[in-house]
């Protein structure tokens, strides 16, 4: 399974949520984080153009930003699926 650790963290969060001791997270909230990460990634790409001496370092940073974006999109999709299955139960 992709993002196995993230998945178990999400399950733990949902357990806490059921007990009323955590905040409900919506897919739209994750969308806000994704927007920030995308903006940040765009900034890194701009920096590659203006600071060629840092290209290698920036490539690693962009790699990390991509991975973070992948995790965020996966989380958003899980929350959308959960919301969809809850709505169909109703």
């Amino acid at each position: 399974m992709p993002f196995e650790k993230l998945n178990s963290k999400l399950e733990r969060h949902l357990t806490l949520l059921a007990k009323g001791s955590s905040r409900k997270i919506k897919a739209t909230d994750v969308g806000k984080i994704i927007a920030k990460l995308e903006k940040r990634r765009a900034k890194l790409l701009d920096e590659v153009a203006t600071a060629p001496h840092k290209t290698e370092r920036l490539a690693h940073k962009i790699d990390a930003a991509d991975e973070m974006l992948g995790r965020a999109r996966w989380l958003q999709k899980q929350l959308q699926n959960d919301a969809g299955s809850e709505a169909s139960k109703d």
Partner: peptide, 18 residues
Amino acid sequence: EQRSALSIEEERRALRFE
């Protein structure tokens, strides 16, 4: 509003490379 603590992960990655 523009800041995300998640960007620290980028620094960690760059640090490992260095």
